[in-house]
């Protein structure tokens, strides 16, 4: 029961319990499609802070709705994508960015594809060289008596 209460407490801590990933207020959509597309692109790169793993655009939480509205106001006011993103980071930190910026802290993260590929290539190269070297010198292991018997049985049948 304690576990339940804890979960309930966590839930109510959130500004607004978002039961389903539903729909937002249409009145906040911009009538200019190019601007709306820009606003959506910005919003889909920002994290909804209340619901943990969704973008601002996908979430129906109250805070996400407010931030969506702010993005649209700023798009209309002619601010650049960078300025709008910086505005959000200033308030909520880089935690709000679903795509972490490339900085010393994230070198390993952004470098992970290259590191993995290099590591894979290195392992393959080493294995190829070893295979060359050893395959020539090593004879196959002798069969155990039991295996010999099985082999003979197989050959006979």
């Amino acid at each position: 029961m304690k576990r339940l209460r804890l979960a309930a407490g966590l839930l109510t801590l959130l500004l607004q319990v978002a039961p389903a990933f539903a729909v937002s207020d249409p009145s906040e959509l911009l009538s200019n499609p190019a601007m709306e597309a820009r606003a959506e692109a910005i919003g889909s790169h920002l994290r909804c802070l209340v619901c943990q793993n969704e973008s601002i655009e996908a979430s129906d939480a109250g805070l996400a709705r407010d931030i969506r509205a702010i993005i649209r106001q700023q798009v209309v006011a002619g601010r650049t994508d960078k300025q709008i993103t910086a505005y959000m980071v200033q308030r909520y930190g880089s935690f709000i960015l679903l795509e972490p910026p490339f900085e010393p802290l994230t070198v390993l993260l952004w470098g992970s594809p290259v590191i993995a590929l290099l590591l894979g290539a290195m392992i393959a190269l080493l294995a190829f060289r070893r295979q060359r070297r050893e395959a020539a010198t090593i004879a196959p292991a002798p069969l155990s008596p039991a295996e010999k018997a099985r082999l003979e049985a197989l050959l006979r049948s």
Binding site: R47, S94, L98, E99, L105, T106, L109
Partner: peptide, 15 residues
Amino acid sequence: FDQQISVGPPFFIST
């Protein structure tokens, strides 16, 4: 580092 960062869909898609 005691810092909060997020890694979301845009990162995964681009890598």
